[in-house]
Design a binder for these strands. Structure first.
Lengths: 181, 181
DNA sequence: GTCTATATTTCGATAGAC
DNA sequence: GTCTATCGAAATATAGAC
């Protein structure tokens, strides 16, 4: 709290005035962060574009956004890991206004898209959940594991940025390539 | 320290006797954990099997191991994120005895494998680093983000185990499928 | 609303008996 | 090696002036 107050340019008493307890402050900070973890992703998935374009849009959107907030995934993951009660806030934050109907809103259109392509013989079958998890993994993991990857691959900040820039180009083809029949 | 002592069935004084400071204990715990994050992965990659078999082996090995230690990725990621100085210990732990030559030992054979297949027209080009990052992402991310995914997908522990079991079957085909020419 | 000053609690480290 | 008891520091919460 001392450190936060100092960085904010105020004192602990003022933090207490606004948030009462450290836990309240942590919750408020988490809610803010969670609200921007997948900013456009859900909107894109629930939207009307072609599936191939959705993938490209999500990759670009997510990598650009996380490049500007590289600590976000690590923070969210760490917080939800250490405090399981944050899980509720997380889905609430992602869903925005409408709280509980988030899953059908995402997976309904996604499943329809996939089914149509499978029926047309232009895509191999995949569960919508797997589709989502794999896409998130490829986009988010490098940021979540950023310091680890930098150590493993011997990269500095610039090298990591280059790695992400390359992924922006490669990932859509990689991901969609995996789903070819 | 109190909590750790209680779970260990001893008291704080004994922890102090063995580890002197909290930082020493944290370091020792991290070194242990880091040593088993990618137990066989490096051995497999540096080994002599066919590339397709290496992928299948790594997926099976990693998902089985992490199923038994699901908190491991979240812990490692959190620790390295909050304390960058852990990065050194991490690569040291992964490399085992031979400390600094870990990258050529992994990426040398991997690059040769990929190049041969690209030359033969049976694989589309991919940088060894991308190969590694994508494979790690697909294997490790679901565990790192476990509580998040459980909340998003509405899974309990059993449901998550099923998700992982399905990935064991799906991932090799997904990953190798992405690399078809 | 914002501050200074302080009370209260928690935690890491240590002393010393056995 | 393992314990009980306690010190000292740090952090969180609170009181009260402005």
């Amino acid at each position: 709290m001392q450190e936060i107050a100092r960085e904010a340019g105020v004192n602990q008493a003022l933090l207490h005035y606004y948030f009462r307890t450290k836990e309240h402050l942590a919750q408020a900070a988490f809610a803010r962060a969670a609200a921007q973890l997948m900013p456009g992703v859900i909107a894109v998935l629930a939207g009307a574009a072609r599936l191939e374009d959705k993938v490209a849009q999500i990759v670009a959107l997510e990598l650009d956004h996380l490049s500007r907030a590289p600590y976000l995934p690590g923070y969210i993951i760490g917080e939800v890991t250490h405090r399981p009660e944050r899980a509720r806030d997380l889905i609430a934050a992602m869903a925005g206004q409408r709280a509980e109907d988030i899953r059908p809103r995402i997976f309904g259109p996604l499943k329809a898209d996939i089914d149509a392509r499978v029926a047309a013989g232009t895509m191999r079958p995949i569960a919508p959940q797997s589709f989502m998890v794999n896409l998130m993994a490829l986009c988010i993991f490098p940021f979540a594991a950023r310091p680890m990857l930098m150590a493993m691959l011997g990269l500095d900040a610039g090298g990591f940025a280059q790695l992400i820039a390359r992924r922006r180009d490669e990932l859509p083809a990689f991901f969609l390539g995996a789903l070819r029949p």
